[in-house]
Amino acid sequence: MDLFGDLPAPTNAGAGVKNEAPRQEEDRGEKRKRDGDLENTQVDEKNKAEKKVCKGLAKLKGFVAARRGEREEMQDAHVLLPDLSASVQTLPSHVSRLAYFAVFDGHGGARASQFAAENLHQTLISKFPKGEVENLDKLVKKCLLDSFRQTDEDFLKKASSQKPAWKDGSTATCLLAVDDVLYVANLGDSRAVLCRMEQTDSGEESCVTLALSKEHNPTIYEERMRIQRAGGTVRDGRVLGVLEVSRSIGDGQYKRCGVISTPDLRRCQLSPKDRFVILACDGLFKVFSAEEAVKFVHKILQDQSVEGKEGSYEAACQRLASEAVRRGCADNVTVILISIEF
């Protein structure tokens, strides 16, 4: 049974295979008998280290655009950490790179979103698997689940100690890249989508939109049933007629009504057919469908008038957020665009 909602593999089965030379088998016993054993061992370790660094991983770079819209304050928060590995003391031996990107959409104030932006990845770092591991997927899943739970508990403890108690809450959509595998954990209605190029029947390439997250709102049957079993009600599509999401960080007054902080998890193996990921709060998706947003960005990236790859991603990110406001979104809009380059 799969631990994650895995995304479909690209149609070209060989596209995602990394060019990594097979590790040569060595007879350690014979090496110890040779003169210069220490020198050989040091060379062997150096080769392994170089091989680990040069795995041909996809380059990931994040760009962000934030618009306040018509709100009195910006309640969104975001995090871009393309090299989270530097903060982890001991990575599993076969892991070369960690990267982390996240968007948080606050409601009732900005304190829950800011707290999650400052603390969730720190908790994740402390809980990330260390040393030799056999089932990395299972351990990464546990790490993400535990990190979300701990962040929620820590914020609720802080919120309840205030006078008056804070009532802030926040969605969360976090992307953790472990080498070339993306793990996406999300709560609420912020979303993550991937642009992947596929060949059409005519032989041309077309961008396909793949969902990397799952929305949580009280109108979804499973979510509504959980809320009702916990003694809560759903009115006008909201928990107790007020809260628009059914899972969140914070929202202490709704936790007894079935609002939980357990994220949905998706896993995706990157391939050379992948171009970019969009992480964004619901402010964007109120006026863009996922497909429209992907095509909007892809068109800008194809525009030869935009100077340089990095400049085109930056321009696409800024234009997407501005277009959401132009289309009439009055909410805060935060967009993270993550470029993928093999």
Rank of each mutant, 00 (worst) to 15 (best):
G250H: 00
C174L: 05
L194H: 08
R256G: 00
S147M: 08
R226W: 07
R256L: 11
T233Q: 12
L182E: 09
G232D: 05
D236S: 12
D146I: 02
L175T: 07
Q253N: 06
S202E: 15
A192F: 02
V242L: 10
R196F: 09
S246G: 06
V208S: 12
R238P: 04
G241A: 01
V239H: 07
I220N: 08
T151I: 06
Y254K: 03
P263H: 03
I227S: 08
R235Y: 13
S161R: 13
L270E: 08
I249Y: 04
R238K: 15
K167W: 00
I249Q: 10
R229A: 15
R149K: 15
G232L: 06
V178G: 09
G188C: 03
L240Y: 05
R267Y: 08
R256N: 10
R266Q: 11
R238A: 10
R224C: 13
L243S: 03
H216V: 00
Q253Y: 05
A165M: 07
K163T: 15
R238Q: 13
K157S: 12
D146Y: 02
A211Q: 14
V234C: 10
Q162F: 11
L210G: 10
A211G: 09
R196L: 09
V242F: 11
S271G: 08
V184Y: 10
T233G: 07
S213N: 05
K255H: 06
L243N: 07
E204V: 11
K157G: 02
D154R: 14
S190M: 03
T171R: 00
A165Y: 02
S213A: 02
D189S: 03
Y221E: 15
T219R: 13
D179C: 03
K157I: 02
A159S: 05
Y254V: 02
S190W: 03
D251S: 08
D189H: 04
K158W: 15
